[in-house]
Every structure is written in structure tokens, then in C-alpha cells.
């Protein structure tokens, strides 16, 4: 029994799950039953993948012991590259590949600069936040490019599918990526290296793990996911605005942290990041439905982030205190 309790207390995403259930119950009550009806859930699930994809990448990177503040800018840059190429008449597949390639290059640059000059990723990616945003605005020429009609494969990314059109295609992409990343982190040797690199760098190095390459690869995964999420939003809206994704980097960090990811690295799960992202969407949506002034959103998010970290560290201490070991 105690052992079971300990296992659950040690799950970093536990606090997030509890918050989620409590908040859903409150909003369901406050909104007079609207919150959990199928129309509202459809709306919630339709927007979720965009935040959640970014949050998952940031979570993975934070577990690796690094940080990415540039995801919001990449979220705008990647679809902008795609849109500019589409406007110039290039086929979708080429434009799309170019956009994702740019995202990968940004991730590589972030990782390379961080690792080889040994500077905090907080700084490198803060710089990249401005650089990537600036490039986005410059290549857009100040006006969002006009996308030729019917060029975007909406059926593949944003069309409604499933019973009663419950999900968008983007939700299926999100589930697929979530499963893939979870398997990568928990079940592959590369995932073990990511966790070791973030958990205790000197140990990972002394065991011969190529920590620099691991970090650069993780930066690239994080950036790629941010760019991918950006293209989904642009396809949903139908127009690439150079300002999309502003502030998203901090929401993604908040999601990761609410989901139990430690800023110090080594601790966290992909599921935790997803739960954090769901919570952010739920608060945003629930406040509106409860007819609360929407400007309270940031206050709620901020308070939840701090509260979640306090609860998480308390739970971790509790779990550690439960001794079930028969030591020598």
C-alpha cells in the first residue's frame, strides 16, 4: 500500500491531473453545464494541439536540462517561410518542407551556440526569440502574404473528423506526436541519454554519452515541433500573421512546469507537459464560459504555475520521506 502511494506521489504529473479535475468541475458548475458539452469540447480540442505540441517540445528540452525561449518566434517563422514560398508559386510540399527545415536550422543554431560556447540556453534562445521574430516580419514585408486559395491541404491538418466532427485532424497529429515522444523518452536509449544529460551532466559525460549531440538534437526536436504547431495554426486561420505565437514560449514553459517538469532538468514527463497545456486551454476557455473578465486569464495562469510548483515539490518531498526500502 505504502509502496503504491509512493509510486503515485512520485509521478510528476500528479498535481496537474488533480488541478485539471478540480477546475473542470468548477467550470462545469459555473458555466451551467456548458463547459463539458460536446460543442465546447470540440472547440477546446481543436485549439489544444497548437499549444500542446509546443509544450511537449519544451518539456523534452527542459528534461534535457536546457531551455528554449524562441519557440514562439519559430511558431511564426516556420509558417511564414511556407507562406512566402506558396505566394511565390512553389508547390505546397516544397514550401512546407522549407518551413520545417528552417525550424530545424533554428533549433540547431540554438543548440550549437549553447553547447559550443557554453552559454546558458536562456541567453541564446532569448536572442533567437528576437532574431526569428524579426526575420518573420521582414520576409512577410509587413503584410501577411496572400495565400492562393485551396493550396493548403486542410483535409490533412485541420479538417474535422471523427464521430460528429469531434476532432480536428490536428488532434490526431498531436496524439501521434505525443505517443512518439513518450516512447522516445521512456523506452529508447536516446531517451535515457536525454534524461541522464539533464539529470546530472558530469555523470552522463563520464559514462561516455555524447551530451553535446544529445542536446543539439533535443533543441532541434523542440524547434521542429514549434514550427509544426505554427503551420497548423496558420492552416486553421487561413492567413499567416507575423505576430502569432507571441508569449507562447512562456505559456509552454508554464505548461511544462505545471505538469511537473523541473527547471533543473532530469525530471518530467511528456504527459505532464500535455496536462499542463490542457490546463492552460481549460482556464482560458472556462473563464470565458463562466463570464469572468478574460483579462483574469494571465493571473490565473500565473497563480497556477507557482502553486503547481509548490505542490509538486511538496509531493516529491513526501514521496521521498516514505521509506519502503529494506536497506543494508
Amino acid at each position: 500500500m505504502r509502496r503504491l502511494l509512493k509510486i503515485y506521489l512520485e509521478k510528476p504529473e500528479l498535481a496537474g491531473v488533480v488541478f485539471l479535475i478540480v477546475l473542470a468541475a468548477i467550470f462545469q458548475h459555473q458555466s451551467g453545464g456548458v463547459f463539458l458539452n460536446s460543442f465546447n469540447l470540440q472547440g477546446l480540442l481543436g485549439l489544444l494541439p497548437e499549444v500542446a505540441l509546443v509544450a511537449m517540445g519544451v518539456t523534452l528540452l527542459m528534461i534535457c536540462g536546457e531551455f528554449d525561449l524562441s519557440v514562439g518566434s519559430v511558431f511564426a517563422l516556420c509558417p511564414m517561410v511556407m507562406a512566402v514560398m506558396l505566394e511565390a508559386g512553389s508547390p505546397f510540399i516544397l514550401a512546407y518542407a522549407a518551413g520545417l527545415l528552417v525550424a530545424l536550422m533554428v533549433g540547431f543554431t540554438n543548440g550549437f551556440l549553447t553547447v559550443h560556447f557554453n552559454i546558458p540556453s536562456f541567453i541564446t534562445t532569448l536572442g533567437m526569440l528576437f532574431v526569428a521574430r524579426s526575420i518573420t516580419v521582414v520576409i512577410s514585408g509587413g503584410f501577411p502574404p496572400m495565400l492562393p486559395p485551396d493550396v493548403l491541404p486542410k483535409w490533412l491538418f485541420t479538417a474535422y473528423v471523427g464521430p460528429g466532427g469531434m476532432f480536428r485532424m490536428s488532434f490526431l497529429w498531436f496524439v501521434a506526436v505525443a505517443v512518439l515522444l513518450t516512447v522516445l523518452l521512456q523506452r529508447t536509449n536516446f531517451g535515457n541519454w536525454i534524461r541522464a544529460t539533464g539529470g546530472f551532466l558530469p555523470a552522463a559525460q563520464s559514462m561516455g554519452i555524447p551530451t553535446k549531440k544529445v542536446k543539439i538534437a533535443t533543441f532541434m526536436i523542440c524547434s521542429l515541433l514549434a514550427g509544426f504547431a505554427g503551420t497548423i495554426q496558420v492552416m486553421r486561420l487561413g492567413a499567416p500573421l507575423p505576430s502569432i505565437g507571441e508569449g507562447l514560449e512562456l505559456q509552454a514553459v508554464a505548461a511544462a512546469v505545471i505538469g511537473g517538469t523541473a527547471l533543473t532538468g532530469g525530471i518530467g514527463t511528456i504527459l505532464g507537459g500535455i496536462i499542463g497545456a490542457i490546463l492552460i486551454r481549460v482556464i482560458d476557455n472556462g473563464l470565458v464560459l463562466s463570464q469572468v473578465d478574460a483579462n483574469w486569464f494571465k493571473l490565473a495562469l500565473g497563480a497556477l504555475t507557482v502553486f503547481a510548483v509548490i505542490v509538486n515539490s511538496w509531493l516529491r518531498a513526501k514521496a521521498k520521506a516514505i521509506k519502503v526500502e529494506t536497506s543494508t
Binding site: 555523470a203 552522463a204 532530469g266
Partner: peptide, 13 residues
């Protein structure tokens, strides 16, 4: 690595 299990630590790398 303190945040990882014994089994995972045994085989790091």
C-alpha cells in the same frame, strides 16, 4: 544520475 532509477543508471550509455 540521482533522478534516474538504479536499472537505468546501470546501463547509461
Amino acid at each position: 544520475v540521482p533522478t534516474m532509477s538504479i536499472a537505468r543508471n546501470m546501463f547509461i550509455g
